[in-house]
C-alpha cells in the first residue's frame, strides 16, 4: 500500500479531496494533477502543505486566485523601474484587471478606453491587448506631467488613473480628470516611504465623505487589501507609506470601482 489520501486545507479545515492517489504531478500556475488507483483524475490549484508518508496523507493548501475574489478592478502601472521617464524615453504603461494588485490573467478585456490629460487637453491613447494585459504606448514625444486614465465597462464600471511624469521636477497643481468617481492626491509630490500620503475622493467632481478606500502595494502577500481607510468630510484620507513598491488606492460607489496608482519615484 503505497498510495495516499489527499486532503485540502480550506479555511483551516481539512477536507478529503481524493482517496488512494498514486500519481501527483505539479503543473504550471500552481496546478497539481492527481490520479487515484481507481482511475479518478483531478486538477486543482493548490500547493503541497505537508506530506505524511508513513500515514499516507498528503495535505494541500488552496490557492486563491484573483479571479476568485468577489470584486474585479482595473489599474494602470508605468512600464519603468524607477517611477518616472526621462526625456526621449519611450513612454509605456500597462492596464491590468484583477484585485489587490494581483493580476487576473484569465480576464479578457473588451474595448478598454485609455485617455491622457495634459494642460487641460484630453486625447485618446492607442492600446494593444497582449495576453490579458492592455499595453499603452505614448511614444517618445511626451513631456511633463500628465494623467492617464482608463475605463472598462462590464458588470461594473471600472476606472483607473495614474500620474505620469517625463523629465525632472514638474510640480504642478492637480486637477481632476472628471471621472464619475475619482481619487486624486491632495498635493502632487514625490511620494516617499516613511511619509504620510493624502488622497481625496471625488464623486461627480465633489468631495465624497465617508467613502471606504482600500489600499494595497505591489508584491503584498496579503490575500486581501491590507489597508482600509475612510474619507473625512472633505473626502480626504491618508496612509503612512511603509512598502517599497507602488501603492494602489481603490474606492467603490454603487456600480463604479475606481483606482488610483501611486508611483513612488526618486
Amino acid at each position: 500500500m503505497c498510495e495516499a489520501n489527499v486532503y485540502i486545507n480550506r479555511n483551516g479545515k481539512e477536507e478529503l479531496l481524493m482517496e488512494k492517489v498514486d500519481r501527483m504531478i505539479p503543473g504550471d500556475e500552481n496546478n497539481i494533477f492527481m490520479e487515484s488507483i481507481f482511475g479518478e483524475r483531478r486538477v486543482i490549484q493548490a500547493r503541497i502543505k505537508e506530506m505524511q508518508l508513513v500515514h499516507h496523507r498528503i495535505i494541500l493548501e488552496e490557492i486563491k486566485t484573483a479571479a476568485e475574489f468577489q470584486e474585479q478592478e482595473i489599474w494602470l502601472t508605468l512600464d519603468t523601474e524607477h517611477g518616472h521617464f526621462h526625456d526621449g524615453e519611450e513612454i509605456r504603461l500597462n492596464l491590468f484587471n484583477g484585485y489587490n494588485m494581483k493580476v487576473n490573467q484569465d480576464h479578457v478585456f473588451s474595448h478598454p478606453q485609455v485617455s491622457m490629460l495634459q494642460h487641460g487637453q484630453t486625447r485618446e491613447c492607442p492600446v494593444q491587448i497582449n495576453e490579458g494585459i492592455v499595453e499603452v504606448n505614448l511614444g517618445e514625444e511626451a513631456d511633463g506631467l500628465m494623467q492617464v486614465y482608463a475605463h472598462e465597462s462590464g458588470d461594473k464600471e471600472l476606472y483607473a488613473k495614474i500620474f505620469l511624469e517625463v523629465g525632472h521636477h514638474h510640480h504642478h497643481g492637480v486637477e481632476p480628470v472628471g471621472l464619475p468617481l475619482e481619487i486624486i492626491p491632495s498635493n502632487y509630490q514625490h511620494a516617499r516611504m516613511g511619509e504620510n500620503y493624502e488622497i481625496q475622493v471625488l464623486k461627480n467632481g465633489l468631495p465624497l465623505a465617508g467613502a471606504k478606500v482600500k489600499s494595497t502595494y505591489a508584491g503584498t502577500s496579503n490575500h486581501d487589501y491590507p489597508h482600509h481607510l475612510v474619507t473625512d468630510e472633505d473626502g480626504k484620507t491618508s496612509l503612512f507609506l511603509t512598502a517599497r513598491g507602488n501603492y494602489l488606492f481603490s474606492v467603490a460607489d454603487g456600480e463604479i470601482i475606481s483606482t488610483f496608482t501611486l508611483t513612488k519615484s526618486f
Binding site: 518616472h84 525632472h168 521636477h169 516611504m193 511603509t242 517599497r244 526618486f266
Partner: peptide
C-alpha cells in the same frame, strides 16, 4: 529627482532590506 534619493531609501538600498 534621480539624485534626490531620500535618506530612508539610501539606507534601505545600502542595507538590502527594511
Amino acid at each position: 529627482m534621480c539624485r534626490d534619493m531620500p535618506p530612508l531609501e539610501l539606507a534601505i538600498q545600502f542595507h538590502g532590506h527594511i
